[in-house]
Write a protein that binds this DNA or RNA. Structure first.
Length: 445
RNA sequence: CGGGGCGUAGCGCAGUCAGGUCAGCGCAUCUGCUUUGGGAGCAGAGGGUCGCAGGUUCGAAUCCUGCCGCCCCGACCA
């Protein structure tokens, strides 16, 4: 992408309404624009990140055996009246009516709808297990939206739902999602610590939240420092092997970790040695629940079992805050100059900076590099504007692409370009002809 | 919903207490020239229903009333 043809409205100054880093940086880097309290437009750069995160979530869901579908944002109120949640959900639910005065609502979640779908089409235990997910916009009329996309009213969520015959099979489904969440967040360069959680309005008795540590997190958390030593990238396992999956869950739940609501100071002190007790702030990016027949009963979702009897389905639901993750990742990765994207979610893999647009040799080198990088399948944002070098450096640091290829007359006199790592600040002079291979090595490294 | 604050050019702000001389500043934008390896300099130009609606007054960004929007703290939450 040529920056001169792109739409990247960066702000030179901090917008006054943004207090925390991710919100400030998303506005400054031209990723989002606020339309109303807790409601945002996603500008091209922000949208690319959202799509990257979505793709990782989708890949890991499918790997764990979940099947993608899409349910609407608008739901009939009638479904929610049947589950009893129409009244329970309170003023957080955005209620609307159509021209015929039919009561509708903008979905805050989809347990009712998916259960209704499954109830209609699944009659036999032979059609189980079943795990369905979608990635769709939600609306919750929060009392106080804040922190940009971290607590918006409209937000993009992956929500998945599992359906099984027995409680045991249902818990296996829950465990699979537990492990897939570890994988999902690790694939984004994050360490998301699973913590025992309250079930809240969703109900049920088994639940974990996944939290990323960040000073600006909304949750107070307590955990064992042993989590810091864990290898978060070694969950290659057979999802159909209940024992193997349960072993990983056991491993990660054996260490103490709890949010404030579930924190037990006595247990914390008993189980964790003083030097390993950590307390801090965390951002919730995922939440999984197992709630048995809480919705399958009122919504009549049942199947015939091998015993010839009717059984209500054993269900769980599994959420990942996709749009919230954009903010959370920035909270976890930024410095005084701007965003520092982990490679897997960066809007572009590298930036190419032409320090002297209009200089024949520099232009030629940049154009050649840009073409070769594109041919190598790399996503590159090419700053071909005629602005000054200083502005280009500052802007490229702000938007935080993992690698910068810096091309100017000074280096070209020696036949080199500079390759800079955004996270470490390390720079390397690389012969022009080797730059593409070098960068590919960096990105694979 | 309780408490605090804000609304003046695209962004950041001054002006409001003490009504007139108040439509201002910096950055950004446009034109020209000079510059060009970490947010350039000079010269010129464009851009505002002062959140909205009433009211007071000879006169309102400024005073009064009502409304709307946004932010922060708290209670509540993907």
């Amino acid at each position: 992408m040529r920056l001169s043809r792109y739409f990247l409205p960066v702000l030179r100054e901090d917008p006054k309404e943004a207090e925390i880093a991710s919100h400030r940086l998303m506005l400054r880097a031209g990723m989002i624009r606020q339309e109303a309290a807790g409601i945002y437009s996603w500008l091209p750069l922000g949208f690319r990140v959202l799509k990257k995160i979505e793709a990782i979530v989708r890949r890991e869901q499918e790997r764990a055996g979940s099947i993608e579908m899409l349910m609407p944002t608008i739901q009939p109120a009638e479904l929610w009246k049947r589950s009893g949640r129409y009244d329970d959900y309170g003023r957080e639910m955005l209620r609307i009516s159509d021209r015929k005065e039919h009561e509708l609502l903008y979905g805050p979640t989809n347990e009712e709808m998916i259960t209704d779908i499954v109830a209609r089409f699944v009659q036999s235990y032979k059609q189980l297990p079943l795990n369905l997910f979608h990635i769709q916009w939600k609306f919750r009329d929060e009392i106080r939206p804040r922190f940009g996309v971290m607590r918006g009213r409209e937000f993009l969520m992956k929500d998945g739902y599992s359906f099984d015959l027995t409680r045991e099979e249902g818990e296996h489904a829950y465990n699979k999602m537990f492990v897939s969440y570890l994988r999902t967040f690790a694939a984004m360069g994050l360490k998301a610590i699973p913590m025992r959680a309250e079930t809240g309005p969703i109900g049920g008795n088994l639940s974990h939240e996944f939290l990323i540590l960040a000073d600006t997190g909304e949750s107070q958390v307590y955990f064992d420092a042993a989590f810091h030593e864990k290898d978060w990238r070694t969950f290659e396992l057979d999802y159909d092997d209940p024992a193997a999956v349960a072993a990983v869950v056991d491993e990660f739940t054996s260490m103490y970790a709890a949010t404030e609501e579930m924190h037990d100071e006595e247990r914390f002190e008993r189980e964790v040695p003083p030097e390993r007790r950590v307390s801090g702030r965390g951002i919730e990016v995922g939440h999984i629940f197992f709630f048995g027949d809480k919705y399958s009963k009122p919504l009549g979702a049942k199947v015939l079992g091998p015993d010839g009897e009717e059984h209500h389905l054993q269900c769980g639901s599994y959420g990942i805050g996709v749009s919230r993750l954009v903010g959370a990742i920035i909270e976890a990765g930024h410095d005084e100059n701007g965003i520092v994207w982990p490679e897997p979610v960066a809007p572009f893999q590298a930036g190419l900076i032409n320090l002297r647009q209009g200089d024949e040799a520099t232009d030629a080198a940049c154009e050649g590099l840009y073409e070769k990088l594109a041919n190598a399948g790399l996503e590159v944002l090419y700053d071909d504007t005629s602005e000054r070098a200083g502005e280009k450096f500052v802007r490229m640091d702000l938007i935080g692409l993992p690698w910068q290829v810096i091309v100017g007359p000074r280096g070209l006199r020696d036949g080199v370009v500079e390759i800079k790592n955004r996270a470490s600040g390390a720079r390397e002079n690389v012969p022009l002809d080797n730059a593409v291979d070098w960068l590919r090595q960096c990105l694979m490294g």
